[in-house]
Design a protein around this nucleic acid. Structure first.
Lengths: 124, 124
DNA sequence: ATCCTACATTGGACGAAGTCCAGGTCAACA
DNA sequence: TGTTGACCTGGACTTCGTCCAATGTAGGAT
């Protein structure tokens, strides 16, 4: 555990946190000015392989990193401003996929993304 | 309707078709050698705004384009080779999101991505 | 049939996001 | 102290996508 990794882990902390790699880097720099982009990418990659952090690809641009990996959840995204909230729907989408629709796949995971307009953008 | 647009539309035809923009371009070139990347991107963008084609962001790399836009469906992705199948789960995930979990959003759409290993990769 | 005009297309430059690599630094341990 | 190995750095590079000025063309007007 080095200073760089600690800083990245600190930046990624809390609920409803979904930063891009560049945002993580920007915040890390403000705590540890000489940290490099490559290190941030490496550390994020390691956190993802360790299962500590999730990669989220809700928008088509940059990947986002979600530290709330241990509590299963899905995402609600504002189509206008891109805000992301963690949500916990009822029901189990895995059970909704009959084996006739599995094409022989071993299905291990589901990711649900709700899209809509957030209250803030709705009033504009 | 120009020759270029017709070619792009022809390339994007069928079920379980999920090409990247570059793949669309490559196939379009084989039918119309002088077609440019910019035109393919423009045409894809127009098809998406017209609602004829869906953008899919299942993998973190390039966007993919799904011509099967009129029949609502979700996706099953192989974590190893990236193969994508269209699937039609039972149930309605929109109904599974209680209003207490909507944070004031006006939710209009859901996208479900199942992940697993396809039969082909499983035998390797 | 010809001309005009608006729109489509082209190709290349540009930008954003991410990866890779060679070299430097640091901590631990013998 | 010297060696070792892991880590970090900065910059070059790749990939995917967008933008733009110049050119071509489809299809209505004459």
């Amino acid at each position: 555990m080095t200073a760089q990794r600690r800083v990245v882990a600190e930046v990624l902390d809390g609920e409803h946190v979904h930063l891009t790699a560049d945002e993580v880097h920007a915040r890390a720099v403000s705590k540890l000015p000489e940290i490099s982009r490559a290190t941030v990418y490496n550390t994020l990659g390691e956190l993802v392989s360790l299962g500590e952090v999730l990669e989220v690809a809700t928008d088509k641009r940059a990947k986002r990193y979600d530290p709330n990996a241990h509590r299963p959840h899905h995402h609600l995204v504002c189509a206008q401003c891109g805000t992301i909230r963690d949500v916990h729907p009822t029901g189990n989408p895995l059970a909704d996929l009959p084996s006739s629709e599995r094409f022989g796949f071993t299905v291990s995971d589901v990711e649900v993304t709700y899209r809509g307009v957030c209250p803030n953008c709705a009033t504009v």
